[in-house]
Computed example of a mutant assay.
Amino acid sequence: MSKIKESRKIGILHREEGPMPDRLIEEINKKAIEGIRAEICKIPEIHPAESCEYTIIIDRASHCLPFLREYVKNALLSGCYIINNPYRFEPDKFFDYTVAKRMGINLPRTVLLPTKSYRVEPCYRPIEQEDLLNLSYPLKWDEIASYIGFPAVIKPALGVGWKHLTIVNNLEELIRAYDRSGHQIMILQEKIEYEHFVRTFVLGKKYVCPIKYIPSRRDYICDHKHLSRELGKYIVETSIKLCKTLDYDMNIVEWAIRDGIPYAIDFTDLVPDANPRSITYFYYEWFIEHMTKVALEYALHPPKPRCWHTLNNLIGKVSDNP
């Protein structure tokens, strides 16, 4: 790492999540690179267009605290680089599935369903039947079920952490789960009956760690030979490609492997669990080491301003993948 003349601060936004934030700050500062220092962000009131004291902010909290979301948006406009981009910091699963499909990546069969009901904000009138003229009702449940097949998974399009996810085994269970979904936009997806499941950390769009994972137990397994050379290469390269295209600097890509074929199940875990009690101390140390590298590399050589030029090549492209 080289020296720099001006001071460049790295700020951490976080909630209570175990030892990781303090340890990350400690490791960054232990490198003792002249002009670079990491600290916990402390934020008072925000003024429009005010400058930001940080060169880099690692954001692990604004998805839960709307005030912080406004702070990082303002910081972005002042030239601060935010991990992750606040304008992409949404669990926008269906959009990401669409991008992945156009990239030719294997996905489970997937459809997006209109909401069962509609939230009424206090300042708006209730949604009436006449307001839904653009929607095609009733849904053709038999056709949808025939396309997706059973068992299937129904889950919120904007959900995180497997919340409100339901496995359905027949049409009756599907309609019952849909009726319970309320105002949430739901995704219905083929359930891949996998023989192997992989959670893949991707940091800085280049550091990758594919981990054997047991979803039913939420267990990370320390097994460094769980993938063949060919499959491991595909998962690493494709996970990087996804995160570069979607502009995610800190993410997890989940793969379900069936009959030797990897399917991308989810790739919008933008605040990956980094607590050693859940991800094991081995992978915790990997996360700390590589998140430290990303923070310092970005502070020394701040990435160019955000743009989605990578998406331009996908517009209008129809994937050959069925």
Results as ranks from 00 to 15, higher is better:
M1T: 13
R8H: 09
I10C: 10
E17H: 05
E26S: 12
E26C: 00
I28H: 01
K30D: 13
I36G: 01
E39I: 01
I40S: 07
E45S: 10
I46P: 03
P48C: 12
E50K: 04
D59W: 05
R60N: 12
H63R: 12
F67R: 12
V72I: 14
V72H: 05
K73Q: 14
N74I: 11
L76R: 13
S78Y: 02
S78M: 05
S78R: 01
N85D: 15
P91N: 13
F94K: 01
D96V: 11
M103D: 07
I105Q: 02
I105H: 02
I105W: 00
N106W: 01
N106P: 07
L107Q: 09
R109C: 05
T110F: 03
T110E: 08
T115F: 00
K116C: 10
Y118K: 05
R119F: 08
C123D: 15
E130L: 03
N134H: 07
L135E: 15
L135I: 15
L135K: 12
Y137S: 11
Y137M: 14
P138W: 06
K140H: 12
E143T: 14
I144E: 08
I144Q: 03
A145M: 04
S146T: 14
I148L: 02
G149Q: 11
I154C: 07
P156D: 14
W162Y: 09
N169A: 04
L171R: 11
E173W: 02
L174H: 10
R180V: 00
G182N: 12
I185P: 00
M186Q: 14
Q189R: 08
Q189I: 07
K191Y: 13
E195F: 02
F197D: 14
F197V: 15
T200S: 03
F201V: 05
V202F: 01
V208P: 02
P210W: 07
Y213G: 06
R218F: 08
D219S: 08
C222T: 15
C222I: 15
H224D: 15
K225C: 08
H226G: 01
E230H: 04
G232S: 10
Y234T: 07
Y234P: 01
S239V: 04
S239Y: 03
I240G: 01
K244E: 15
K244N: 08
T245D: 05
D247C: 08
D249H: 09
I252T: 13
A256K: 14
G260V: 06
P262S: 06
P262F: 04
P262K: 07
A264Y: 02
D266T: 08
D266K: 10
F267C: 11
F267Y: 09
D269A: 13
L270I: 12
D273F: 04
T280Q: 05
Y283D: 14
E285Q: 12
W286S: 09
F287Y: 14
E289D: 13
T292Y: 01
K293E: 15
V294G: 00
V294P: 00
E297P: 04
C307A: 04
H309V: 10
H309A: 05
T310L: 11
L311W: 10
N312G: 03
N312A: 10
V318D: 13
S319R: 02
N321V: 10
